[in-house]
Simulated scan of single mutants.
Amino acid sequence: MEVVIVPTERVGSVGADIVGSLVRRRPESVLGLATGSSPVAMYADLIRRHRDGELSFADVRAFTLDEYVGLPADHPQRYRNVIARDFTDHVDLAPNAVHGPDGLAADIAAACTAYEQAIEDAGGVDLQVLGIGTDGHVAFNEPGSSLASRTRIKTLTRQTRLDNARFFGDDVEQVPVHCLTQGIGTIMEARHLLLLATGRAKAEAIHQLVEGPVSAMWPGTVLQFHRHVTVVVDDAAASRLQLADYYRDTLADKPAWQQH
Rank of each mutant, 00 (worst) to 15 (best):
G32S: 09
A148S: 12
K202T: 09
E28Y: 11
R227V: 11
V11S: 03
Q117G: 07
G53Y: 10
N141V: 09
R227G: 14
D126N: 09
R158T: 09
D107Q: 03
L223D: 07
D59M: 07
R26F: 12
G12I: 00
R25N: 08
A216K: 08
G212K: 03
V125A: 01
H137S: 00
V214Y: 08
L130E: 00
V30R: 10
L104N: 14
P39Q: 02
D170F: 15
A58E: 14
L33Q: 10
M1G: 04
I187E: 09
T181L: 08
V60Q: 02
Y247F: 15
L55G: 15
V125C: 06
Q258I: 12
D234P: 14
P219F: 03
D235Q: 12
I153N: 11
G20V: 11
R191E: 13
H192D: 02
G103P: 12
T230G: 05
L147K: 04
N96K: 06
R166H: 14
R191K: 13
A44N: 13
L193P: 11
V4D: 01
R152V: 09
M1E: 03
A118I: 03
I153S: 15
V125N: 04
D17T: 05
P95N: 01
L223P: 04
A73R: 05
V138M: 05
H228Y: 13
T155D: 12
G15R: 05
S149K: 02
Q208A: 02
S146C: 02
V222A: 13
H75D: 08
P39V: 02
